[in-house]
Design a protein around this nucleic acid. Structure first.
Lengths: 128, 128
DNA sequence: TCTATATATGATCATTTATTCAGATAGTAA
DNA sequence: TTACTATCTGAATAAATGATCATATATAGA
């Protein structure tokens, strides 16, 4: 059992520890890759400005200018944020002339936000 | 319309902009407080180690030692992470003598993780 | 009381990250 | 081509963050 530990994990091997729980947790654990992917998704949603962008795009397409005005930051800052969201495939865009219209790639993001709202027992006062 | 902007948001007022979309986004937007709460929840879940902890605690109680061995970091690091999760009320603990057993505070966290897995079309290979 | 164990906490440090600025790219129209 | 607009990108900087180390607290037992 102990030899299934990676070499770096030696610092605690002498303490209380319920070895069977640790082994069970390892079996139940997500793969490192899955875990990284999920963490990066949540991290992307964990920035207040990005979260506002995502929530805004849930109800309508917006261009970079619109978002910058809505968020109250520079267009460059918004563009950087949008790139992150694009790389994670949370948003996609559509070009119309020189203007890029951004939207949510799928409904998972807004589902996650709504589910998270339940945790805080927030009301989703839809007034749009 | 424009006077509903906060004084700091002046940098984009001369660009293309679909003002009606910006106004609609503002109406639809979460309150700053709600937004901050949600962002902090997602941010907490956005660290790979914290996410592993949360996912592990979904299936069983673990003490700090267990978690440290499972994650492969020091108990102090785990304790710091657990404090953040406690302050956000994502986990709670139960004392048994000198040992603190941690568990998820409610089922929202694991629901969020499972929903996020759908975004990546991950399979939840339950082998525990 | 003293000792040992389990966990928590505060300070520090290295890394990450969000924004800003300057400049580049892409599209449109003259 | 030139000029203009919308957006993107890379570098730099300041702030936030996670881990480590040393120390403190809490509980149990002698």
């Amino acid at each position: 059992m102990v030899d299934s530990l990676s070499p770096a994990n030696e610092q605690c091997s002498c303490r209380c520890i319920h070895h069977e729980r640790v082994e069970a947790a390892k079996k139940h654990a997500l793969s490192p890759k899955q875990n990284e992917h999920l963490a990066s998704l949540f991290k992307a949603m964990g920035d207040p400005n990005r979260l506002r962008i995502l929530w805004a795009l849930d109800s309508e397409e917006m261009c970079v200018c619109d978002i910058a005005l809505f968020i109250g930051t520079s267009e460059s800052a918004v563009s950087h944020q949008l790139r992150q969201l694009r790389l994670l495939q949370l948003v996609s865009n559509r070009r119309e002339g020189p203007v890029l219209y951004y939207r949510l790639s799928d409904s998972h993001v807004s589902s996650l936000i709504r589910l998270a709202m339940e945790h805080f027992k927030m009301e989703e006062h839809r007034n749009v």
